[in-house]
Design a protein around this nucleic acid. Structure first.
Lengths: 328, 328
DNA sequence: TTTATCTATGGAAACGGTTTCATGATTTCG
DNA sequence: CGAAATCATGAAACCGTTTCCATAGATAAA
């Protein structure tokens, strides 16, 4: 493996000059530039990025945190972020927290050890107070997730609205018995706000909730199936269910079909995110502008890194869209 | 940011000894070890990974190439690889080739610049001859994809079997007019072998194929919809269609429903991969042991890196499983 | 014409670790 | 008891760049 020294020797110049050519520094005559280029070509030289990182104290790498990459919401996000970053010379390290607090903290050490220039959190497992100290080691920002205490740039949707829009839709369809079904993340405002929106819509309509209809721990299709069975077992059953993701909604629907229930007449279902599967099966859902969110976030992050901007709260809020299909 | 020097000074020892403690080298007395630990604690010291990378000439990072992370086949793969790697102290760089030859080559430079210790390709866009030269810079291996010329470890399924099993199933269901629908990757043996398997099954059954029934460029649900419309427009229509992915199959089915076709009576559809969506909608499909594949591949790669094994062909072949549902 | 500024280059320090080598102290073994 | 092996530590070299500083010639300004 050729080093810059080898190139310098072959070109009959100093390392410094070679470095200048590589980094497009002015003050190198065209003649020397040509000499260096030829030498690099001949030796098939490529600068060693570890050395570069050490000297420049930057890695051109950005970490993206997601709970699980198989969740289509997050994989879409990562797809867009990855492409955007790659186009600008940054690479992406994927950190899957697996909904685990420990795992999240483990990965945070990445920033501390200077393995990345910054990180984007799409979901938070720990209290903000556990994450905040890491801000000393480099820029952190939020995308999708948001938090009052976090003094960081945030690209998000107001999930109160999300919960409200969906529930409001069900109410307008004539439902008064509406179940609520979500994940299980205590530290996340996405979860709690959405629930707040749900309750807000109910209260406005003067509807009383049934505590039994608050179903948690639902992330996947299988969870949806389980949720359906919980609903089916109830004495006082809801006529509609608000879910936190299209996958869960799809699982509920699938199991409902197995039990010969008619959707939406026996049970109306509304999903969240507008994943491809929602269109496929005809699920009413609340669309989140994932790509837009992802791109704005990555743009912000690269901006912050390149201009060494101080970390401060800067909120970019995007909007939901209700997509009405045949499940409601 | 504290350096090893600061720790050494505070502990009243040399950098060497501190380094030994960090790297769990024997020959350090418990007393000094304690001194070092305390100093590290007090200074909140973390070794700088760029420096470490430079000196040790390794990055503890592995690049994984996928066409697009939103394809569930690949996101499952990446999920497993990411977790497996992370458990063993490696991190994952995600490289999305976007089905582009250029993009693939661009990312290959990662290995050259020593940004990663090795790379796993799950799909190949370029001819192997374009990829091979990069083997000089570090270990490369294949997972899912395979190639005759590639003298590298390969975890794969024999796609001839895959194509055969699926087509055979359709034939057994009484079909003789079977369309074939796939992506568009010329460099990939996954694609060509699967087609070979399809033709093999037909030939064995003495069935003549119709060239018009060879449909390409199909990756997504939307592509599936388009494919359906192409089929619907035909004068001589197939009664069954073999697809290269569950997403495409789902798209075909969805559009068939829109046109009031009955599946499987008007058109039988078989998917590939056994994604969650297949179970959801009742799609017959050919399961690939994705998780197993991913894990074996990552295990291999880490093994190769840690034991500096020479790159050689080593094939690990896994098996398909036909999952019969109601679309056939 | 002298002085200040700009251009072009190289030597050496710096980035922050790990590894090699040297050395002395301690233990083991014949 | 002396030689050999093992343990414990530190100084210095090294990994491959970029950057700071010095120098010198060329050009511009006074």
């Amino acid at each position: 493996m050729a080093t810059i020294q080898d190139v310098a020797k072959l070109a009959g110049l100093s390392r410094t000059t070679v470095s200048r050519v590589i980094n497009r520094h002015p003050y190198v005559t065209d003649e020397k530039k040509r000499l260096v280029m030829n030498a690099m070509e001949e030796l098939n030289y490529v600068p060693n990025s570890s050395a570069r990182r050490l000297r420049k104290q930057q890695t051109e790498t950005i970490a993206v945190y997601v709970p699980r990459i198989t969740n289509p919401f997050f994989s879409q996000m990562v797809e867009v972020m990855g492409n955007y970053a790659s186009d600008r010379g940054y690479q992406l390290i994927l950190c899957q927290t697996s909904y685990s607090r420990n795992q999240e903290i483990n990965y945070l050490e990445l920033l501390k050890t200077k393995q990345v220039d910054g990180l984007i959190l799409t979901s938070i497992e720990n209290e903000w107070s556990s994450i905040e100290p890491y801000m000393n080691y480099g820029p952190i920002m939020l995308c999708n997730e948001y938090n009052d205490q976090a003094q960081v740039p945030t690209v998000y949707l107001d999930q109160i609205e999300g919960g409200y829009i969906g529930t409001r839709h069900l109410i307008e369809q004539g439902h008064t018995q509406i179940a609520y079904c979500s994940g299980n993340n205590h530290a996340s405002r996405v979860a709690s706000d959405r629930y707040t929106g749900y309750k807000k819509a109910l209260e406005e309509a003067g509807i009383v909730t049934n505590e039994d209809w608050f179903l948690t721990n639902a992330y996947s299709i299988d969870d949806g199936k389980r949720v359906f069975n919980e609903i089916a077992k109830m004495n006082d059953r809801p006529t509609a269910v608000f879910t936190g993701s299209d996958e869960v909604a799809a699982g509920i629907w699938k199991e409902a079909l197995n039990h010969k229930w008619d959707v939406p007449n026996d049970l109306a279902i509304i999903g969240f995110d507008d994943q491809p599967v929602a269109d496929l099966i005809g699920l009413t859902t609340i669309r989140q502008p994932i790509k837009n969110m992802a791109q704005q976030a990555m743009k912000q992050m690269i901006d912050i890194i390149q201009h060494k901007l101080p970390s401060e709260k800067k909120e970019i809020k995007l909007e939901f869209e209700l997509i009405k299909r045949r499940s409601t």
